[in-house]
Simulated assay, not measured.
Amino acid sequence: MSTVCIIPARYASSRYPGKPLATLRGATGSEKTLIERSWRAACEVADFDAIHVATDDDRIADHAKSFGAKVLMTSTEARNGTERCAEALEQLGDDVEIIVNLQGDAPLTPPWFLSALVAGLRADPDAALATPILRCDGETLSALKADRAAGRVGGTTAVADAAMRALYFSKEVIPFTGSAYADDAPTPVFHHVGVYAYRPDALRAYPTWPVGPLETLEGLEQLRFLEAGQVVRCVEVAAQGRKFWELNNPEDVPRIEAMLAEMGLP
Rank of each mutant, 00 (worst) to 15 (best):
T3Y: 10
C5P: 00
I6V: 15
I7D: 01
R10A: 12
A12L: 11
A12W: 09
Y16F: 15
P17I: 10
G18T: 06
K19Y: 01
R25D: 01
G26K: 07
A27Y: 08
T28C: 09
S30I: 14
K32W: 11
I35R: 06
S38T: 15
R40S: 09
R40T: 08
C43N: 14
E44K: 15
A46F: 01
F48K: 05
V53H: 05
V53I: 15
D56Q: 12
D57M: 03
D62K: 13
D62R: 14
G68L: 08
A69K: 03
K70R: 14
K70D: 14
K70Y: 03
K70A: 13
V71S: 07
M73T: 13
T74K: 01
T74L: 03
T76R: 12
T76Y: 04
E77H: 11
E77F: 02
E77C: 02
A78H: 03
R79H: 05
R79Q: 10
N80S: 09
T82H: 08
T82A: 07
E83D: 02
A86I: 02
L89P: 02
L89S: 00
E90Y: 02
L92E: 09
G93P: 11
V96N: 09
E97C: 09
E97M: 11
I99T: 13
N101R: 13
L102V: 13
G104D: 15
D105S: 12
L108C: 06
L108R: 02
P111Y: 10
W112L: 13
W112T: 13
W112K: 13
L114C: 10
L117T: 07
V118E: 02
V118W: 06
A119M: 07
L121S: 04
D126E: 15
I133N: 05
L134F: 04
R135S: 08
G138N: 09
G138P: 09
T140R: 15
L141A: 03
L141G: 07
S142L: 08
S142C: 11
A143M: 11
L144N: 02
A146G: 07
A149E: 12
G154E: 07
A158P: 02
R165S: 05
L167Q: 14
F169Y: 13
E172W: 11
V173I: 11
I174A: 10
P175A: 12
F176M: 11
T177R: 07
T177A: 10
G178I: 05
S179K: 14
S179N: 14
S179P: 00
A180F: 14
D183F: 07
A185E: 15
V193K: 04
V193Y: 00
Y196M: 11
Y198G: 04
L203D: 01
L203E: 00
Y206A: 00
W209R: 12
W209Y: 10
P210N: 04
P210T: 01
T216S: 12
T216D: 10
L217E: 15
E218H: 10
L223C: 03
L223D: 01
F225A: 07
E227S: 05
A228V: 05
G229Q: 13
V231D: 08
V231T: 15
V232K: 08
V237T: 09
A239Y: 03
A239L: 06
A239V: 06
A239N: 13
Q240V: 05
G241D: 09
F244C: 02
W245L: 10
W245P: 01
L247Y: 02
L247F: 05
N248E: 15
N248Y: 11
P250L: 04
E251K: 07
D252V: 04
E257F: 06
A261I: 02
E262I: 04
M263Q: 13
G264C: 10
P266K: 03
